[in-house]
């Protein structure tokens, strides 16, 4: 029983990453009608925002400490990060320790900007072109972004540890222990998902966007510049992917191709949930995450060997063939 609960927790955790990426993909598809193969790259860039911030905080200057000597007998050089000298040693150390959560604040404007530039600079020109062209150009963009990151940060994974206070293990249920950061990730994803839904549901801006998703032309006829809002939605989707990436760093050290690995799965998630359906994307994300983890149980693997590797694709194939619009897809959208 404990094993099952643990696997469900694992699944929810994996599912929250899938759900966040799929949510962004669906936002883009639902508003702009574009299939964005570069979304995984945005996730990766988010993770590297955390890496960058961590490096910025660790920028330090050297001073010579006469009281200590190094192994050659010379006066030892002591590196002091600038943050520590500005904010005092304790606050400074705390800031460095909390660099991953702080990177959230750093990543949002950057991702919004990247999303804005991407939409205005490239995607805008592809609305009228066929879906295959959109897939191809964003696929090319994903390669380019990935290579740029590789050029600046190298090909090896870079450790981005969680803050000391959150890197231990907590008892989530009586007798069940689980890494604290993964619990944080799950809660964080719920907050982000809730935030996006609340934004769309309870603000005038969100209302207009939803109206635009339902019938773009009519909204345009009412004298609303829907394109401008959709551009902002692209930025929002990019930052959701970026945030998912920022917080994912401590779970899996960021490397330049992490985006591609997630992209394939998130597409499957979007298709299972239903193209253009936001709740569908979230539901399918968690569902597939949990299914994947449950399939990794010893008992299941020994019954059907290899099932844990293919369960997601298997589910996707069955769903596509039996219910092409996905679990919660609207009727008539890309059926």
């Amino acid at each position: 029983m404990d094993a099952i609960i643990l696997q469900i927790l694992n699944g929810l955790d994996k599912g929250s990453a899938y759900a966040l990426i799929a949510l962004g993909l669906t936002l883009i598809f639902g508003t702009l009608g574009v299939v964005n193969f570069a979304h995984g790259a945005l996730f990766m860039i988010g993770a590297f925002c955390a890496v960058t911030l961590q490096r910025l905080f660790n920028l330090s200057y050297e001073t010579i400490d006469p009281t200590k000597t190094d192994f050659l007998g010379n006066p030892a050089k002591v590196k002091t990060p600038y943050v520590e000298s500005w904010f005092g040693p304790e606050t400074g150390a705390a800031i460095i320790d909390w660099s991953v959560p702080l990177a959230i604040l750093f990543a949002i404007p950057i991702m919004l900007l990247i999303g804005y530039v991407m939409e205005r600079g490239l995607i805008k020109h592809f609305y009228k072109r066929p879906h295959a062209d959109q897939i191809l150009v964003t696929f090319g963009l994903a390669i380019v972004l990935q290579e740029i990151i590789k050029y600046f940060y190298g090909a090896n994974p870079i450790q981005t540890p969680a803050p000391e206070a959150l890197s231990g293990i907590v008892e989530v249920l009586p007798g069940i222990f689980y890494p604290a950061w993964r619990v944080v990730y799950f809660c964080f994803s719920l907050v982000v998902i809730g935030g996006v839904f609340a934004f769309l549901q309870f603000t005038t801006f969100g209302m207009v966007v939803r109206a635009g998703m339902a019938d773009r032309e009519t909204v345009g006829l009412l004298g609303i510049d829907i394109d401008k809002r959709f551009t902002l939605m692209f930025g929002l989707a990019a930052s959701v992917a970026g945030l998912a990436g920022v917080m994912y760093g401590p779970i899996n050290a960021p490397n330049y191709h992490m985006g591609m690995d997630f992209l394939v799965l998130s597409f499957v998630v979007v298709v299972v949930g239903g193209m253009g359906s936001l709740p569908g994307a979230v539901l399918a994300g968690f569902l597939l995450g949990v299914l994947e983890s449950l399939a990794s149980l010893e008992a299941v693997i020994s019954a059907i060997p290899g099932i844990n590797q293919i369960i997601i694709y298997l589910v996707a194939i069955v769903i596509l063939l039996t219910r092409p619009r996905g679990l919660m897809g609207r009727k008539g959208v890309m059926e």
């Binding site: 299939v35 879906h131 897939i135 394939v264 597409f267 499957v268 298709v271 193209m275 694709y313 996707a316 194939i317 596509l320 092409p324 890309m334």
Partner: peptide
């Protein structure tokens, strides 16, 4: 369309 791409990718 896109579904075909995803299906082949899944397989």
């Amino acid at each position: 369309g896109i579904y075909f791409s995803i299906l082949t990718l899944a397989f």
